[in-house]
Amino acid sequence: MPGSKSSWAVKIVAVLVKDLRAEYRTRYAVNAIFLFALTTLAAVSFSLGAGGIPGHYLAVLFWIILFFSALSGLAQSFVKEAETGTAVSLKLNAADDAVFFGKWLFNLILLLGLECFLVPLFLVLLNADVARWPLFLGVVLLGSLGMVSATTLIAAVIATAGVRGALFSVLALPILLPLLVPLVRVTEYCFLADSVAGSDELTVLAAYAVVATVVGWLLFPFVWRD
């Protein structure tokens, strides 16, 4: 069939590079997501004031800030395509799989970028000490994978629906709910030196990311094309 002169990997990377380049020039999503994270973190740390916070609450705050920052920015790349009309150009030139995984990768990079900035700031401002670094990095990565897997499809839904803002959070939150509890649990372990980490939670997180990605990939064509 026509249009098979470049491989899947090339097409996916092409979508990713296009998004990164556009993002670098406009900072459309980065501004939204970083500023949201920064202001939320500032507000939280300001309201808490000085003094030690128990590990459990640290973990809760950490993921709540990250969840809502992500929800403020992860829909942008799809919403912008739909709003400006470039989505039509994309639909007429790219296979669905390339678009889905390109956006998936872009969102993952965006979220990991946010974490590189947010995590140190969080640890400093809230006086948190991580006792188990490898586990901490692992759980942050798994959590990000899960969030990106679920939200990429929801972002496409929002963009196609032609609505923005609050509805993204409304749709994404129930889907992300199963992530929140295991994430907080494992992160709590990371802040406490004397407790034992459960590998069950990590398995759940990994399974969630895989299920959400596969479901997103299978359902994406129904969202993207009429």
Partner: peptide, 29 residues
């Protein structure tokens, strides 16, 4: 048409995630 399509997709995503709510979380706690 868009409403029908998108809401069908959404309820299916919910259905795929629901087992985590039904079976996995209660097992962890």
């Amino acid at each position: 048409q868009a409403r029908a399509r998108l809401s069908a997709v959404y309820i299916l995503v919910g259905g795929a995630i629901a087992p985590f709510l039904f079976f996995v979380l209660p097992r962890l706690y």
